[in-house]
Design a protein around this nucleic acid. Sequence first.
DNA 1: CGCGACGTTGATTTGCCTCAACGATTGTGG
DNA 2: CCACAATCGTTGAGGCAAATCAACGTCGCG
Lengths: 183, 183
Amino acid sequence: MHISLTTEEEAYFASFLQYKNIRRKQFLFQEGDVNKFQAFVIEGCLRSYSIDRSGFEHVLQFAPPGWWIGDMQSIITQQPGTLYIDAIDDTAIILLFKSDLEKIYTAVPKFERFFRILAENALATYQHRLIGNLSLSAKERYENFCRLYPSLIQCLPQKQIAAYIGVTPEFLSKMLNQGTAKK
Amino acid sequence: MHISLTTEEEAYFASFLQYKNIRRKQFLFQEGDVNKFQAFVIEGCLRSYSIDRSGFEHVLQFAPPGWWIGDMQSIITQQPGTLYIDAIDDTAIILLFKSDLEKIYTAVPKFERFFRILAENALATYQHRLIGNLSLSAKERYENFCRLYPSLIQCLPQKQIAAYIGVTPEFLSKMLNQGTAKK
DNA sequence: CGCGACGTTGATTTGCCTCAACGATTGTGG
DNA sequence: CCACAATCGTTGAGGCAAATCAACGTCGCG
């Protein structure tokens, strides 16, 4: 990780963490809620997405083990959020509440560093994805996705991938089946 | 701003800053360079963009006065970047080198906080833009752009806006001229 | 002045969407 | 343990938003 901690600092940090289990399809967060925590995935998989005016889902992020997830906009502003977060599989997570995080920052400034680096990496990732969405075809975005998240392709329903790369499930299906040579 | 500084801290920080002017159309950064600094715009306007395989530009960010800009991916990894950054108008900027920033972080940890918050806000902004690109029509994206950057619409050539919202200049032109009622 | 960037407009094409129907799989309750 | 509903992927016909290509007028600038 990006910082090293003494045993006391670790214990202090750990004292704020809350463990939680979420069942497949259960919601961790819904549009209109104020998001008061970041979630860290230990096992399983979460996803964050928005639902547009026409009822279509658009996936912002998948969070397999080792990933953080939350409605950043809502966490920052403490205003009602616009995203949904739910579980794709049964999932074990750790919650870290914003109010506690503020305390942690004050007590152990090193954590500012940790979460700064985390945010900067995430930022670069989203910039890269945005550029991809502006410049690549659906097929190329799919290939990128496979290259970037090889562990996910196997456990995700195809329509979730479609909602991530920005095409309809029907179109993704056709794309995949005519890339394959036919007899 | 997000932190408050003593006079000494301010002076210490200021001692690292380098002022620079860039002429219209001049490059601050090009694909393949390793980005060693963040730039803060005082006056004028910069833009960061990528050029795809077919030679089309895709704007990642405009930076009017008060904004930071850089190739985040390259700054983090210190590997050659993929973006271009150039000046839309004659522009005055401040450079803050990554190597200096590391020193500043060590000397005055408060700055970790400042740049953490900066990165988190930027992150939320890109997430929002990505969702918009996945769920909105070209017209809606244009309207969002106008709402979000009213100061920019006047000084930007139309084709730059097109390259930001993700349409061709031709299409944006048509869109705008038939939204207007005709006689 | 003349060149190059920009915006405009039209004709045509295309990548992706919409809608609808259908089989396969899953899971759930009786 | 089976019946049924729900979800998912597939396929086809047709439609539309946006891209492509090309031509042209305008303006600012060297």
